[in-house]
Design a protein around this nucleic acid. Sequence first.
DNA 1: TACCGTGCTGTAAGGATTTTCAGCGAAGCG
DNA 2: CGCTTCGCTGAAAATCCTTACAGCACGGTA
Lengths: 339, 339
Amino acid sequence: MAASIEDVAKLAGVSIATVSRSLRGLPDVAATTRDKVLAAARELDYVASPFAARLASGRSSTVGIVVPFVHRWFFAEVLGAVEAVLSQAGYDLLLHNLGSSEGRERFFTVLPVRKRVDAVIIVSLALTEDEVEALNTLELPIGMLGAAHPGFFSVRIDDVTAAKQAVNHLLSLGHTRIALIGGDTDDPMRFTPPHHRLTGYEQALQAAGLTVDHSLERLGYFTVEGGEAAMLGLLGLPEPPTAVFAESDEMAYGAMRAIRRAGLRVPEDIGVIGFDDHSTAALLDLTTIRQPVAEQGVRVAAALLASLHDPIEPTDLVLDTELIVRGSTVKAASVYAES
Amino acid sequence: MAASIEDVAKLAGVSIATVSRSLRGLPDVAATTRDKVLAAARELDYVASPFAARLASGRSSTVGIVVPFVHRWFFAEVLGAVEAVLSQAGYDLLLHNLGSSEGRERFFTVLPVRKRVDAVIIVSLALTEDEVEALNTLELPIGMLGAAHPGFFSVRIDDVTAAKQAVNHLLSLGHTRIALIGGDTDDPMRFTPPHHRLTGYEQALQAAGLTVDHSLERLGYFTVEGGEAAMLGLLGLPEPPTAVFAESDEMAYGAMRAIRRAGLRVPEDIGVIGFDDHSTAALLDLTTIRQPVAEQGVRVAAALLASLHDPIEPTDLVLDTELIVRGSTVKAASVYAES
DNA sequence: TACCGTGCTGTAAGGATTTTCAGCGAAGCG
DNA sequence: CGCTTCGCTGAAAATCCTTACAGCACGGTA
């Protein structure tokens, strides 16, 4: 049988109230008393029951995180960063993986985090008004990552600007026929990136005095296969593009594969730029836009922890992205492209 | 203010005990009574406080999962599978990411899952006796994934056999000088795979009547860079290998890069086989050994849930691996290898 | 008719903390 | 020296459920 606070109190010769205070490092405990308590606790190998503590205090020492797909690189990376911050602060992490739009719907109707977390992190979801309302009924600090919503604290990158960064890089190399391979802007999961990156793409072209050719915009799935299919479509055009901006590295990989299978070279015939700086981007020598993934995770987590003490204002923190130039846009020592 | 069980009882005109029973679907409640209670609960938007329930019942409805590095592909994949099973059963998932050997040590000394989970899943860790002892003090059902330990339930693949599968494939192609690029068998994180795969590699060679040449065994990091460095070493040998078995797809990627940078071709000059069937393996046209990752997750999770009702025996469940032949060992339409 | 089981329901005892409030001795102050 | 303040400690209420047990009404059995 595990020891209870009463056993510790008895052994230390104090009341349970004093044990509680000592163990939690509260003030108003004499140093000698505290030492006695700590010694007793150590001897009995005592740990407070978190559930009893949570029930009594009303605080759960837990934060919930909601991600669309844990197994995808971006989300797994975020999760790792968030977990590190929280566990170090003594907080538990309650993971909710949506997996599909049904899962998403279930989450927002059931709200399985109710009465069990102190704060919630929402990753990469563009919230509907109903969802916002549902979240508000929780009356908890909410942190968003990778998307923003008025009234909520958020950490993200500026997808519009980042997309411009990508397109401008292609423009600076002299390309004028630049295609876009992106995610479906009508995606039921309502990711924000596709929409914003498409906007950035179009704005960059217009700013350069080019007209937007919608036949060069291919929207589909956020996967390698999706990128490949989209590229095949582009290659079939009477006048194919000379460069492609893919909204994710994975789509870029698919595009590169399609280009090479068609007997063309990257970057000589068609330049490719991706987005994310996925861990394999360097390997595949893909030029891309790097976004600080772990940092975004650390920032939301830290902000939420802080908000538990003194409420913070719902700011929208925008982190910088960085252009990483590699061999898929600029002729260089591209291992896979060399003969 | 959120409604309490008492409010529901009052509204439904029954006692709180009946409310509790009704809401949890226990028998011994008249159908009409239950309906009244459910209606009242719905009207008040009532959800039981999990902490009060846990304190009163002694059950936590939570299972803890311990992974070395969440952000790595394999673990993220496992996590997703486990979460799906648990959340569907109404269980919470408490994530613990070790991150380093210090993190590992901290976990096993502090045992942060104490008094807060009903079961624990340990992923890919070869446990020391001290760690086993620590886990046993928890007196909880323990499930292992990707490793086994007598006395514990486990789900895994047979790394020795899988490694033989890989080497036999190379042998069947006529290779006789086959190198190994693997993980450090003295890794402080004590992953099991490196050790077993090395064993399988050696056994396969011996079974084929070949002598094991230790200069062809390169053990380092489980990363792209590690694989590349190892391959460089092999290429520098007086008589380089004609084929390489890498213990992970990522190391295989590194090896392929090193080979191509040296001006050699895959698979014509050197064949490469990996391990895992990582999501990018198809993209890079890498022959590999596929292991059922999600299935392992589903199996442990399900087994542990079952063990909460009636204790199961500590079986060791071994799932099959599968050889996936692609262009890195057999001349085919390898996109990146073509001139 | 007396008795017994059956099917439901309610009462009340936990469960293990946190936290409020009262209290006590000692020190400080005038 | 008397009174206040301060520092520390303990008693007990509060947190919100689950569950053992007792009890009640009713139909069935002997």
